[in-house]
Design a protein around this nucleic acid. Structure first.
Lengths: 123, 123
DNA sequence: CTGCGTTATGCTCAGCCATGCCTAACGCTC
DNA sequence: GAGCGTTAGGCATGGCTGAGCATAACGCAG
């Protein structure tokens, strides 16, 4: 033990995660919303995945899991064509993202401010 | 696939985690603070562990990890004696808990209120 | 009809982490 | 000194998750 990997030269950081679940399974999370927004921005699941530096397989899994948990269709996809294919968000997907953003907005900033006050960036 | 475990009869729930880390290792978290407070309340690591329904081994590991990451001594322990032994928080441990509580206080309530507004308890 | 890039999905494997089991030391009581 | 309950820690194991690999289908361009 005592690998001493926790060197004390780096500063402390406050972090947080926010998600929605049902029956102990994740329905929506900040990361998943990021993924959906990246898909929307790139028009492609594959490009979104590599933009977030996560395997395509993983990204696809999460989208499917989210669709199942949320019970709504999130993507309108097309395979084949000049560009190989595409993925776009459904209106309900965009609405879900917006709602989630409204729920979680500002929390990290509040935490960062309080953290600064209590731990003043060191310990 | 499609194990259909995500039945839609149960309501959605908003959840969150808050923690402090350094160099990607957890230094303090809401769960760890709970553990420390339970130790303080019971005067024993073992009783705190079973109160939180977690193996003693795990609880002890987390305390040690927290001490290492935080760089301060958290427990004053004694083994042997009439009661078998005891664990009590050091003043610095209590101070760390208080600070963390001040940082994270109220967040869950705010999220719950917003969540209620956006998803009104269903979907 | 061949090639290309994307969607879609199954399968395997490795790594991590929690859990559990075991042992030792301690110090009080009887 | 035997017993008890607690702290302290080593070690094995099992399960879950992510990552990687493989494959098929699709539809347009050339």
């Amino acid at each position: 033990m005592h690998d001493e990997a926790s060197r004390h030269d780096e500063p402390l950081m406050i972090r947080s995660k926010i998600w929605i679940e049902r029956n102990d399974v994740v329905v929506l999370s900040d990361w998943r919303v990021e993924l959906l927004e990246a898909i929307d921005a790139h028009g492609s699941l594959r490009r979104a995945a590599e933009h977030l530096d996560v395997p395509y397989r993983t990204a696809w899994d999460r989208v499917k899991a989210t669709e199942a948990a949320l019970g709504i269709r999130l993507l309108e996809t097309a395979s084949g064509g000049a560009d190989g294919g595409s993925s776009h968000l459904t209106p309900q997907a965009r609405e879900a993202c917006r709602r989630f953003r409204r729920v979680s907005s500002g929390v990290q900033e509040v935490l960062a401010r309080r953290f600064q006050t209590e731990f003043h960036g060191s310990e």
